[in-house]
Nucleic acid binder design. Structure first.
Length: 874
RNA sequence: GCGGACGUGGCGAAAUUGGUAGACGCAAGGGACUUAAAAUCCCUCGGCCUUGGCCAUGCGGGUUCGAGUCCCGCCGUCCGCACCA
């Protein structure tokens, strides 16, 4: 007896078990087929999954199931980005070991993901905190070291005083730590660096080949790498300061050299410090510069300030021409050389500075068509195109010509035995400092020996595992405090030595996990060459836009560093990238301003608008703005609750259907109920279709009547449209087409007056029913299996091939053409799809409405866009 | 400040990429079934007038037989970067 309602609570676990038992989603059994690697950004095991995960993994799952049905050998794995600070924070508060906390979270979240029915190959599951994983990361680190991609150097680092660790530049946002939000301090520390800058040019030019990446992400990376071409130029000091006889500046505008009015140094420039030793006022000025905040607001409002050192330098093209040397607060030590020459007429910052210290502004570039004599610089510097003026031998040249000429001359003139200038390409990208003073991360496999220096841990001794007996009762690094862990013998000389106690930035863990998934059980190496060549690059990667720079740039770098140290030959790890939107929700606030969660309220609708009331005592709460789901605003919806109430299919369908995937989707209970209704409707219509459909496998009749033909056309058009929409990742449109098809099927069923129906119609219903189930299966796989079985179809829909649209049935033979008169639609005509222009024209002009709109005027022009539109111009 | 994206009914959106604007859904209103409710089904649903029209894709221009789509100028919202020489 067929149930009236689809019972998801029974069906979902049943099908999940069936898939698992039959190993439907295990990869690698179809080596003869073309591969497809679909990957979603793996989660941090924070405790529970959230709706963002549901959306992310539902999208990946649609693609995985679709490509599997299309006959590809699909790799769709899942793992855990399992190292990180929250585990240590939890350890400090809850006295639970980070490993225990992390693995408990993984167990919970794995269960939650499994309840969603994702077609994942769980046999490839990895966790980055597993020694079996980080062993290979340590190996990679040492291979990188040998390949010259690892560096150890002292540098100014961003120190997060709350998390008590170092942050990479990419992890500092508006001068604050990306995780703690604390104001970052500058400290001098010796650090391990990954030399990402070695690949600056390659990472930049590689972006051009990533045509399946969002333009936005490519642009962000381009800007982050920040390539600029310029010139290093050396200015001789009139009076040497100690050893220093010159100042070297970097400029992208060497053409404006004759407009120079001053030279300025960064407060932390070595020369600034040198002069400050004998000039207490300068020392005080530098001190003041350090105080200035680095937040957005501070920088915007910061006044350009300088200190005249009293030093002067000679102009490179005129030894008699003196320029004053300032120390200025707006010069950055870590870009270029930390020194500039200022050309106020053509640079706004230089102009602001020059106005303040009365240094003048001589224009040297004059826009085309302007009389140089009338050229005056007001409050705005001129940075447009033009020709050189007031510039001696450069006069009359274009900017490009002048740049070239200045570079050529300075390269061939001598200063203190070296060319005075040199062309230089500069980047904003910095090397990636990976040392972190934390416990819960991958140990850096190095041993420090007093006589041998830093020595790599021999491969045979890998992995260097974390000690388990550590305490978190005081700040700082537990590894450093551990009584015995760091004391080891030097692998070189055998003398007592000390382990590196820093661990790696957790972004290292996620920079190569996609490669590990290709060969997750390999104990000898990170992944075999064969596995890497078979599976990389990832064909479709899906995740949040928040990783546009950090994770995606690091991964692109890692692929190249792996390539250059003998691990595979892939440069770009992700051929296709899709950045999905967030799941957002309304916020609710009680009268006292406290946030209220959606679970605590009920909504009442009506023509007066929606109002929200507390369930507990019925008092009204204010409906606030729609925001990203967050614990602090309590506007979260727990996926577990949704799965328990509506089932996984409903949750999946809703996050896919309401908005385009790259835009935010607004979670609402009404929307979820809409998805729920559709899941039930699928079950109901399958039952109705089953009653009129031919048995599975029935042969096609020789001829089809009009009703059967119409139905078949609807089916094949839907198949074509849904396939295209999924291919283009437009899941919302795919679902809309399926819903439309269900509406069409309902009408077709209504038209059935007597049963059994004719064989041709029965066949068409069978075809429609099976197509419908296969089309919805990627989105709502459980109800699809249930319907598939209900229709008596063989096997599982999860392993059924994707339906193929017959082009003959997709094409229309009769088409409705709108007829416009002077661009306004006046009528519609029904014509054969291949009707010639003359007959279409005759038919169009025959229309009464067309004649009326023509008002008896003669036809000027007749436009026919085949299969689109007719336009009559009078 | 620089760079980018976007702006369509009450709401989320669609529009074959220059060719019937509003598919599909949510909300709302009306009706059927029911003792009642739930569920389900049917109808209406951009605005304005009298059938038939007119006006409508942020605003103002332009190109075109034809513009939501292309171009120019505004307005607004969101995102990224940020004293980068």
């Amino acid at each position: 007896m067929r149930a009236d309602r689809y019972n998801f609570a029974a069906a979902e676990p049943k099908w999940q078990q069936t898939w698992e038992q039959n190993q439907v989603f295990t990869t690698g059994s179809r080596e003869d087929r073309q591969k497809y690697y679909v990957l979603e950004m793996f989660p941090y095991p924070s405790g529970r999954i959230h709706m963002g995960h549901v959306r992310n993994y539902s999208m990946g799952d649609v693609i995985a199931r679709f490509m599997r049905a299309k006959g590809y050998d699909v790799l769709h794995p899942m793992g855990w980005d399992a190292f990180g600070l929250p585990a240590e924070n939890a350890a400090m508060q809850g006295k639970k070991h980070p490993a225990e906390w992390t693995y408990a979270n993984i167990a919970t979240m794995r269960g939650q993901l499994k309840a969603l029915g994702l077609s994942l190959d769980w046999s490839r599951e990895i966790a980055t905190c597993d020694p079996a994983y980080y062993k290979h990361q340590q190996k990679l680190f040492l291979d990188f070291l040998r390949a010259g991609v690892v560096d150890r150097k002292q540098s100014k680092v961003n120190w997060d005083p709350v998390d008590q660790t170092v942050l990479a530049n990419e992890q500092v946002i508006d001068g604050r730590g990306w995780r703690s939000g604390a104001l970052v301090e500058q400290r001098d520390l010796t650090q391990w660096f990954l030399r990402i800058t070695k690949y600056s040019d390659e990472l930049l030019s590689g972006l051009d080949s990533l045509d399946r990446w969002p333009e936005k992400v490519r642009l962000m990376q381009r800007n982050w790498i920040g390539r600029s071409e310029g010139l290093l130029a050396r200015f001789a000091l009139d009076t040497p300061v100690g050893e220093a006889r010159e100042i070297e500046v970097f400029t992208t505008r060497p053409d404006t050299l004759f407009g120079a009015k001053f030279v300025a140094l960064a407060p932390d420039h070595p020369l600034s410090h040198k002069v400050a030793e004998k000039d207490p006022l300068l020392a005080a000025f530098i001190e003041e510069c350090h105080k200035g905040g680095t937040s957005t607001a501070d920088i915007e409002t910061a006044e350009k300030k300088g200190y005249d050192t009293g030093l002067t330098v000679a102009h490179p093209f005129d030894p008699e021409w003196r320029l004053p040397v300032y120390v200025a607060n707006f010069i950055l030590m870590d870009y270029g050389t930390g020194a500039i020459f200022g050309c106020p007429a053509h640079d706004q910052r230089d102009l602001d500075f020059a106005r303040k210290y009365h240094l003048g502004a001589t224009p040297v570039v004059c826009p085309e068509g302007v009389d140089p004599g009338t050229l005056v610089i007001g409050d705005e510097a001129f940075d447009g195109e033009g020709r050189l003026v007031n510039s001696r031998f450069l006069d009359g040249m274009t900017i490009a010509e002048a740049k070239e000429e200045v570079a050529r001359r300075l390269e061939t003139t001598d200063l203190f035995g070296r060319p005075q200038g040199a062309r230089k390409v500069n980047y904003k990208l910095r090397d990636w400092g990976v040392s972190r003073q934390r416990y819960w991360g991958c140990p850096i496999p190095i041993i420090h020996c007093e006589s041998c220096g830093p020595v790599p841990v021999p491969d045979a001794d890998l992995p260097v595992t974390l000690p388990e007996d550590v305490s978190f009762d005081q700040p700082g690094n537990p590894l450093d405090r551990h009584p015995s862990w760091k004391h080891v013998a030097c692998p070189c000389c055998g003398k007592p030595a000390r382990r590196e106690t820093d661990t790696m930035d957790t972004f290292v863990d996620s920079s190569w996990y996609y490669a590990r998934f290709t060969d997750p059980k390999n104990t000898a190496e990170p992944a075999s060459h064969a596995a890497l060549s078979r599976w990389l690059p990832v064909d479709q990667y899906i995740g949040g836009i928040e990783h546009a720079i950090l994770h995606l740039l690091y991964s692109r770098f890692f692929a190249r560093a792996m390539r250059d140290s003998g691990h595979g030959d892939v440069s770009e790890p992700f051929a296709g990238l899709f950045t999905q939107g967030m799941v957002v929700h309304e916020t609710y606030r009680a009268a006292d301003g406290a946030w209220v969660s959606p679970a605590e309220i009920r909504i009442e609708g009506g023509e007066g608008g929606r109002r929200a009331y507390l369930l507990s005592d019925g008092t009204e709460v204010a409906i606030g703005s729609i925001e990203k789901m967050s614990k602090s605003k309590k506007n979260t919806v727990d996926p577990d609750d949704i799965v328990a109430t509506y089932g996984a299919d409903t949750a999946r369908l809703f996050v896919l259907s309401d908005s385009p995937p790259d835009r935010d989707v607004i979670w609402s209970d009404e929307g979820a109920q809409g998805a729920w209704r559709f899941v039930q409707r699928l079950w109901r219509i399958t039952g109705e279709l089953g009653r009129v459909a031919a048995p599975g496998g029935a042969a096609a009749p020789a001829e089809f009547g009009p009703a059967a033909l119409d139905l078949r056309k609807a089916t094949h058009r839907t198949v074509a449209a849904v396939s295209e929409n999924i291919e283009r990742l437009r899941f919302n449109s795919a679902i809309a087409r399926i819903r439309e098809f269900v509406n069409e099927l309902t009408s077709a069923l209504d038209a059935v007056t007597e049963t059994p129906v004719n064989a041709d119609l029965a066949f068409a219903f069978r075809e429609a029913a099976e197509a419908l189930i296969r089309l919805v299966a990627p989105m709502t796989p459980h109800v699809a299996e249930e319907c598939w079985a209900d229709l008596g179809c063989a096997g599982l829909v999860a392993t059924a091939p994707w339906p193929v649209a017959d082009p003959a049935l997709v094409a229309q033979d009769l088409i409705t053409l709108p007829v416009q008169v002077n661009g306004k639609k006046r009528a519609e005509i029904l014509v054969a799809h291949d009707a010639d222009e003359a007959s279409v024209r005759a038919e169009a002009l025959k229309q009464e409405a067309v004649q009326r709109a023509m008002e008896g005027k003669p036809l000027k022009k007749f436009i026919l866009v085949p299969k689109r539109i007719v336009n009559v111009v009078v």
